[in-house]
Design a protein around this nucleic acid. Structure first.
Lengths: 295, 295
DNA sequence: GACTATCGGGAATTATTGTTCCATATTTGA
DNA sequence: TCAAATATGGAACAATAATTCCCGATAGTC
């Protein structure tokens, strides 16, 4: 794409004496020239975004192809923000606007595309069946993503921390709750004592108030990170427990509280999200803990 | 991309008595709905284009990603034709304009990404990783079993019964509980009122004691069938509610209590069982109910 | 608890892109 | 060779998308 956009009057930047523009350049960052550089910056954790911009960062991280292919309005809509927020985000990174910034994604996508594989179409006459297939597809996509860059070291560290804990607190809300219930059940069935923090009776805070430094917390949390989970984990952190986390991006507030964490990204279909990958990883954790304790 | 362009006054095509419009439709071709269909038509050799249009066809064939990612001007430039030629080309295939036509390429590109990553099976030196792979395998096996003899009729009947219910009670214990929590959450988020019977405080029996004939029960149960679920469903049955069930064999005690039921079999690995298929089917049910209620 | 700096929503504005139309060129068929 | 039909280029126009800007909201600080 030779799309040299008109960047109007780029007059050697820094001559303006105004109040420090909210640009990362002022912080010593240089404008990422490639998609990989961008991801590196995003995941470095050195940048702290306010809410909406963080939302954008998460969306970019998880749905690069939608960013490359969509218009600003479509992307904004999918990310749940205003178009202007996207422009602001791009400008923070030193770009003139969204179009420039989007070029990063387009270039990356074109670069990493196997030219012209064909998929078998397969007819589906039924709308419900179509959705079911979509959901199955999302689940399979989630599962197949495990193993691409799966962080074994983190995984093993997690197993170790959990296995050496006196008591394991399992925490997760909303979408993460089904994962934690299954984890808790499985651990119990395997003889691993654990507490499922389900916040029934709003007693969760009091429960985590009993955590000791000999305990471990297994937290599961997905974006948006607006549930009670970060608060609970923060308490556990203060109480010096070991904390291990399964979450879906480096932007999760749990990351900085955790001793170790794993990224598990779930696909969705029509907004209905799979849990297949998280459950599989969770089961593997449970199994690992059992194996280490008994072995 | 839902970019529905205004196609002004497309007045049922063939009423105009004018000279045969240059559209393939008149030649018995139907507008390609997918990228694959388009490629099939292009490669069939049955269409003979004049010079510039042929140039376009060749370019589309060889550089689909540029078509998906670029603007009309960029594409035209790379293909060595005028923008208007691209619009004409799209219209010949029955599209309103280039934007519509480009959607084909965008959809295709999004669909076949990011599976571009190489799937190396690789040796697994690590026991934990081995288990994780096993778990993923079990999940995938469960998912792929859906569709082999999936009972669409039952599924649709279930959707219908649930959609017409005044209130939906969601019941499941043990392994089924994660499924019901996710179902309940999803239904609520979609605006479908429901009661998750979680037996907190051992109040489940009293809860189902409130069921009326206008309600429906969505029960999930797996073998061994020794949980409280059959008892609860039996109460609901006595109270004349409609009952739909997801279970894993015809021997489930719920089968004879249910108006309709679906068999979903989950694979396991080393005794750790997947929930992927049940969750996918559950999501499809939830989606179906929403679609039927709002549609 | 008041003050200040930063953030965020949304309409107005500007820029870019896509489409149509018509004059001209080219091909086709007699 | 001529006339009719079709194809093409390109500029005017319409539609859409991107960006800016202002003001109310929010969070952070003293």
């Amino acid at each position: 794409m030779s799309g040299a956009r008109t960047s109007p009057s780029r007059a050697a930047g820094e001559s303006a004496p105004r109040k420090q523009s909210r640009s990362l350049a002022a912080l010593g960052y240089t404008k990422p020239q490639t998609y990989e550089e961008l991801r590196a910056v995003l995941s470095s954790g050195t940048v702290h975004f306010p809410k909406r911009l963080r939302q954008v960062a998460i969306f970019l991280w998880q749905h690069p192809s939608d960013v490359a292919l969509g218009t600003i309005a479509q992307v904004a809509d999918q990310a749940g923000v205003q178009p202007s927020t996207l422009v602001r985000f791009a400008q923070i990174f030193g770009y003139a606007g969204f179009s420039d910034f989007q070029g990063l994604f387009k270039d990356h996508m074109k670069g990493s595309w196997p030219e012209g594989r064909s998929h078998e179409p397969a007819a589906e006459p039924n709308a419900n069946l179509h959705f079911l297939n979509g959901m199955v597809g999302a689940s399979q996509a989630s599962l197949s993503r495990i193993g691409n860059g799966f962080d074994i070291d983190s995984f093993e560290k997690m197993v170790e921390l959990l296995a050496s804990a006196e008591l394991i607190y399992v925490i997760g809300s909303k979408r993460a709750f089904p994962v934690t219930t299954y984890l808790s059940l499985t651990l119990s069935q395997q003889g691993v004592r654990n507490v499922l923090v389900d916040n029934a009776g709003s007693t969760a805070i009091d429960q985590v108030g009993c955590i000791t430094p000999r305990d471990a917390v297994l937290a599961v949390s997905f974006s948006p990170y607006n549930s009670i989970t970060p608060d609970l984990v923060a308490v556990a952190h203060e109480r010096k427990a070991r904390i291990v986390t399964i979450t879906d991006s480096t932007f999760s507030p749990l990351v900085k509280l955790s001793d170790t964490w794993l990224e598990v990204v779930e696909s969705d279909f029509a907004g209905f999200r799979s849990l297949a990958a998280s459950l599989a990883v969770g089961m593997a954790l449970a199994h690992g803990v059992v194996a280490r304790r008994t072995g």
